[in-house]
């Protein structure tokens, strides 16, 4: 932002001007998400469980889909890295809850 705009900045009403990026990226993301969903369904019926490896594949595909929704549809890719970090880094804390509660669930099963 230029220093001459400084006096005009009011936090409550500030709206940055956004230019359209066109629709090419939207269609690309739609195709990627559709392919990943179809892959999910095909794997469900064709892939053997391989000791939980299949479930890891589903979760990995889910995370890839989440990346495309957040980065492309929600425009996170075009936001400042500071904002992206403020939202994504705290969310990574749930990984601790995942590890803890799945361990606990397994304990309920075996005890």
């Amino acid at each position: 932002m230029h220093s001459d705009n400084k006096s005009e900045y009011i936090p409550e009403t500030y709206i940055p001007h956004v230019e359209s990026n066109g629709t090419k990226e939207i269609w690309r993301t739609l195709i990627i998400l559709s392919i990943l969903t179809v892959v999910d369904i095909v794997l469900y019926f064709t892939m053997p469980p391989w000791g939980g490896f299949r479930n890891f594949t589903f979760i990995a595909l889910g995370i890839v889909k989440a990346y495309y929704i957040v980065a492309s549809f929600m425009h996170m890719k075009h936001e400042k890295i500071d904002l992206a970090a403020c939202i994504i880094v705290p969310f990574l804390l749930v990984l601790g809850l995942v590890a803890g509660l799945l361990y606990e669930g397994n304990f309920w099963l075996t005890s």
Partner: peptide, 28 residues
Amino acid sequence: GGRSPFNVSYGKLMMWIFLLSDAFTFSS
């Protein structure tokens, strides 16, 4: 001061923070 550190509007930043909290709810 004098500028938006994240270069987003107040409302959009609040929406992101709400979505973060909602993501925690669904994660739980």
